[in-house]
């Protein structure tokens, strides 16, 4: 229900059409990044369509996290382009991308340790009145800021209950367990009202029942029109929950297709699944 209008816009300006005529939300072309002598990301390209769940897999060191960092502006690419919602966003800073609705979580969680769960969550809302210094300090204007804080807090409580974090609301984020931090990061990212979420190993360290819970949430959000790209190690998760899987190996894309296709792909089995199957 959220991105329908955006999709129409894309059709009109004709940008972002993929080969089969559908519109891509995220388009990656020939992206590269070198670290010293290593081609961490070596000329990859793919499109992500709106309201899809795509899995990005590959052995350790394949370049998945680096790809995320390039897309979200943490690193500057050495070459290639990133387009989001039809706009060339190559080299944009993380805050510029988050403003446009491209939001990510980190493999190693980056919760704000000395801030409580409530503070962490409240930070996420975009365009808060009180982010303007003058509104926060001037007597009459501050009243509106206080009012808005109450409104935002109501939304925070809802999502905390949904993620079963409400009993931790007053704890400092640094005291949470690894799994709780993953949940905090995901729910915080959701409060930014994103178009697309890039999740770097969201299930790592999350206990199985929470993991199930998290996956259900992702499917619900998917139903609401959110787009997901997720890096995940657990093959079952990827195969069961993603519509499409992109496999990276040594900085390149090895295969790209439906889970069933990937499972049968010779190169993938050799390079990656070989040991397990």
């Amino acid at each position: 229900m959220k991105q329908m209008s955006d999709q129409l816009d894309l059709t009109v300006d004709g940008e972002g059409s993929t080969a089969d005529g559908r519109n891509a939300l995220l388009e990656i072309r020939n992206l590269r990044k070198r670290f010293g002598g290593i081609d961490a990301v070596d000329g990859i390209g793919f499109d992500i369509e709106p309201a899809t769940i795509t899995g990005l897999i590959g052995p350790n060191g394949a370049g998945k996290s680096t790809t995320f960092n390039l897309i979200t502006g943490v690193y500057r690419p050495d070459g290639g382009t990133v387009r989001f919602a039809g706009e060339d966003v190559t080299g944009f800073r993380p805050n510029q991308l988050a403003k446009r609705g491209l939001v990510r979580t980190f493999q190693i969680t980056r919760e704000l340790n000395e801030m409580t769960v409530l503070e962490n969550m409240l930070l996420a809302f975009k365009g808060q009145l009180g982010e303007q210094l003058y509104r926060s300090v001037l007597p009459v204007l501050r009243r509106e800021v206080v009012e808005q804080e109450h409104e935002l807090l109501a939304s925070v409580w809802e999502i905390l209950e949904l993620f079963e974090l409400d009993h931790l609301a007053h704890e400092e984020a640094g005291t949470l367990s690894g799994g709780q931090r993953k949940l905090l990061e995901l729910s915080r990212a959701l409060l930014t009202n994103p178009e697309m979420l890039l999740l770097d190993e969201p299930m790592a360290g999350v206990n199985p029942s929470l993991e199930q819970h998290l996956l259900e949430r992702i499917h619900e959000l998917h139903g609401e029109g959110y787009t997901f790209l997720l890096v995940e190690h657990d093959m079952n998760v990827i195969m069961e929950h993603c519509e499409r899987v992109i496999v990276m190996h040594q900085g390149q894309i090895l295969a790209d297709g439906s889970p069933a296709e990937i499972q049968q792909n010779e190169a993938v089995i050799e390079a990656y699944l070989g040991g397990e199957v």
Binding site: T72, V74, R93, P94, N95, A98, K99, V103, R104, F106, R110, E111, L112, L123, A124, K126, E131, R188, A189, T192
Partner: peptide, 8 residues
Amino acid sequence: LATKSLGK
């Protein structure tokens, strides 16, 4: 970086 990634 986390703050930037939330659009600030």
